[in-house]
């Protein structure tokens, strides 16, 4: 029963997304792409936060490394989208290995502060190294090449074409993260969250698993950064700023920390709410903050968490 419900929900979401891609206006396409990119960012982040129980405040650094890696690769080497995205994600993974190596030695507030410090380090690197990163102005005017597969090429220049590329990456990411959650590795991560001492006594190298989770989630952040760069054709150092690191935290909290689909729902809320509020007032941050407060105080376990508890209670009634 439960299995089929999930299955149907996933297919339904997919149909809606494909439908949006085929029939929607360019603006809706753009917003949906932003939602999917933010979802990848947040779901990857949630491997670390919701699953392993480590609160990182520096994930924007990996997002930015992904974006800069992609930008630099397409400016200086080649514009093949698969190659540049791979370059971005690989660069993010590399940074995640280095930064993670130092950070996973600590937990809780110390871990959060360390990631924050490393994140800002990456930010200042991008901000000051003007010859490579363009300094405060960042890199702009990056064009999307065609996905050439030897004998034929798929153009993704137009937003309506690029949409399906983002959708493909989104679907693959969701599948991958779902697999990770179901795998022994994912279960060990949950074990670390629940009781890391007990996990250690079970003979598992907690630090190694933490590092692995860190790198995996950093890589997804890099992927999101790459896709975001190709969408906006522009990146500035503020992509690495700690204020951007707060986005996946907020999105995860809004949607539901310990749920699988929480970050996706959170991303939808985040992008759509902001878009709506901005139409009425320039002070969108104030209203957005109030709504956020209401969601976090009112929905325990996020929107998805609270809703599923409600649904369960409803269905258990005789």
């Amino acid at each position: 029963m439960n299995r089929y419900r999930t299955y149907i929900a996933a297919v339904l979401v997919l149909c809606v997304l494909v439908g949006i891609g085929l029939f929607s206006s360019r603006f809706v396409l753009y917003l949906t792409m932003r939602v999917m990119i933010l979802s990848i960012f947040a779901m990857g982040y949630n491997i670390l936060f919701g699953r392993t129980g480590l609160l990182s405040f520096g994930h924007a650094a990996f997002y930015a490394v992904g974006a800069y890696g992609t930008a630099l690769c397409s400016m200086h080497l080649h514009t093949h989208p698969l190659l540049v995205i791979l370059a971005g994600a690989a660069a993010a993974a590399l940074f995640a290995v280095i930064i993670g190596f130092f950070c996973v030695r600590h937990t809780e507030i110390y871990f959060a502060m360390l990631t924050l410090a490393f994140g800002m380090l990456v930010f200042s690197l991008m901000w000051n190294w003007r010859t490579v990163t363009g300094g405060d102005d960042g890199l702009s005017g990056i064009v999307r090449g065609s996905i050439s597969l030897g004998f034929f090429a798929i153009p993704i220049m137009k937003d309506s074409q690029y949409y399906f590329f983002v959708l493909f990456c989104f679907a693959v990411s969701v599948l991958l993260i779902h697999r990770i959650y179901q795998s022994p590795f994912g279960l060990i991560l949950a074990g670390i969250r629940e009781n890391h001492i007990r996990t250690e006594f079970a003979g598992l190298g907690v630090k190694r698993y933490r590092l692995a989770a860190f790198v995996v989630s950093g890589t997804f952040a890099g992927l999101a950064g790459s896709l975001g760069l190709l969408l906006e054709s522009n990146v500035t150092p503020f992509a690495a700023h700690w204020s951007h690191s707060a986005e996946p935290v907020l999105v995860s909290l809004m949607g539901g920390l310990e749920t699988f689909s929480g970050p996706i729902v959170g991303s939808v809320l985040f992008v759509v709410l902001r878009e709506l509020i901005e139409r009425f007032t320039h002070n969108w941050m104030l209203w957005f903050g109030l709504i956020l407060l209401a969601i976090i105080m009112g929905f325990r376990g996020g929107v998805v968490g609270a809703t599923s508890v409600l649904l369960k209670r409803f269905s258990e009634r005789p």
Partner: peptide, 24 residues
């Protein structure tokens, strides 16, 4: 039991790939 089996996922992945190719 976990909600979705590996086989289901492969199916869904193929479906997405097909939809993506069709869409562009």
């Amino acid at each position: 039991k976990p909600g979705i089996t590996r086989r289901d996922f492969v199916k869904m992945g193929l479906l997405t790939a097909a939809a993506s190719a069709l869409g562009s």
